[in-house]
Design a protein around this nucleic acid. Sequence first.
DNA 1: CCGTCAAATGTAACCGGTTACATCGAGAGA
DNA 2: TCTCTCGATGTAACCGGTTACATTTGACGG
Lengths: 332, 332
Amino acid sequence: MTNIRKVAKLAGVSVATVSRTLKTPDVVSPGTRDKVLAAVEQADYRPNLTAVQFRSQRTRNLVVLVPIIANTFFARVIGGIQEAAQRRGYGILLCNTLGDERTERAYAGLVSTRQADGLIQLRAYDPFATSSGKARPPMVNACEVLDEAPCPTVKLDNRAAARAVTEHLLALGHRRIGMIKGPRNSPLTRDRLLGFQDALAAAGLVPDDSLWCPGDFTPPSGHRAADELLSRADPPTAIFCENDEMAMGAMRRIKEAGLRVPEDISVAGFDDIAFASFCDPSLTTIAQPAEDFGREAVALLLDIIDDRDDAADAHRIMPFELVIRESTGPAA
Amino acid sequence: MTNIRKVAKLAGVSVATVSRTLKTPDVVSPGTRDKVLAAVEQADYRPNLTAVQFRSQRTRNLVVLVPIIANTFFARVIGGIQEAAQRRGYGILLCNTLGDERTERAYAGLVSTRQADGLIQLRAYDPFATSSGKARPPMVNACEVLDEAPCPTVKLDNRAAARAVTEHLLALGHRRIGMIKGPRNSPLTRDRLLGFQDALAAAGLVPDDSLWCPGDFTPPSGHRAADELLSRADPPTAIFCENDEMAMGAMRRIKEAGLRVPEDISVAGFDDIAFASFCDPSLTTIAQPAEDFGREAVALLLDIIDDRDDAADAHRIMPFELVIRESTGPAA
DNA sequence: CCGTCAAATGTAACCGGTTACATCGAGAGA
DNA sequence: TCTCTCGATGTAACCGGTTACATTTGACGG
């Protein structure tokens, strides 16, 4: 392996001069610079990054914990993270945790052991919570956010967004509105449920929690939940789904029952994934700037890493937009 | 920072003994082992991974180059890669290249500079092709594979799979079959086109290349391509799309034209993404073991890295399955 | 009681950069 | 001519592990 000493010998200078030529070219004289660069070229020298990282105590890597990478929304967020990180010279170490806290802690260990400079968590769990009382490693919590997050956060105002969807359905005359939720203990689900109730309460309606079915954000779970709602004696006239994947599963089930969307039942989703405008009927949903979640999380994380500590407890609320398409219509 | 020397002092042993206790516990006596482990515990010591990597010349990281992470199929492949890598103690450095060769080469540099031990490329491009004639870093090419790949490969028999889809459409009586292709220079597209032609030729038909529209694997491009096909004087009675995303875009366009799938036009896709069974009508498609592509790629790559060189030019062909659903039916 | 040997442990070199500090040399000012 | 200053470059310590090799210890056979 060609290392810095070989290059130094080749160029007839010291290792320090080689290092300086590559890191701070302006402090070496033009003549030596050229000599060194020629030697670098000739030896096809590339600094050993593990050595650089070791010496400089900086890896320029970020760990990203994502619950399910196969989820279209998260895939977009990761795209945004990756783009922003790359532009700032950082790489990302990806972990598809499947919501397993042991796995999350293991990957968080990459930060504690200096293999990464910081961590972005897309789920409401603090992988450093159990670490003994040392200084917290740099972390940002985005998308699904802890209530008392010990770090900066990036999230949507889920409550307001859910309220907006519900108000849209109410305005169309719906009174019995079903909800296909996410997992029970998720703050995201809790907030969306609150927004849903806010809207009902404002309309003077009493929420009926027998119309709330849990799902797991996948199409099959939406299908199952819709099945449950349809099998009731008094099925809802509209269903608000906590993401588009479940909404597509639900629409499928509704059509299998011989009913039409939106004529018989309206369906609304959440996320505005690429398929939302191409399924049939196209889906009324909440558009979120998924890539921006990722970009913003990276920006905040690098602020902490670079010690711009004014950012240490920033909390960003990202904008949403209600996108009305074909899947919601007047109540029958 | 607590380092190995502090722990050694705390335990009253030498650094070598601490290192051995953690790496090869069986060579230290039980008594010392306990002492050392207690000191490790007390000091909350965790070895600095950058130092370990630097010294041992092994990072236990793999670089993954993915063209578009937001593509559902690739997201599944990455899930498989991540799972397999994690099980073998490796992390993955993800790069969403968007097909940009400069970016791909830059990330490939992480391997050349020893920040990763190997690379998995999911696109038909060799990022090391231009590197001056040194030994090739470990690499595996999966999914979309180079024709003369200088490394192990994992792929589908795209030609046979496309032929199977086409034969299915021919068996249903279709004679004018359109095709929504991928980008022009992709070997994947070329192979699928060949399989398509194989089937037509076997049925004694002459292919009509005016029925082949290029797309870019996204729903909107499928929508546009279908628009083009439908605006012809003699539109096809069936459309074979090179992935499910484009198929969904195409179905959408067909329905917008007031036509029914499959009664007026049949549509077939490729990949069997999660939505394929939940869209309306559900999609006839080719199921690929996406996660297995990832797992297999990791297995081959680690074989090279660990110098089991019998694997150095293994070429795996993964199985496919034609899944017939509602979107294809008898020709009108 | 001594020599031999193996197991346990210690010492220190090493990996490949970075950088504080030392050194050198040329030009300016006295 | 001598000294001072400053820019350019060199020397070597250092980061925190790993590991080859050296040393110590204790058991055992003769």
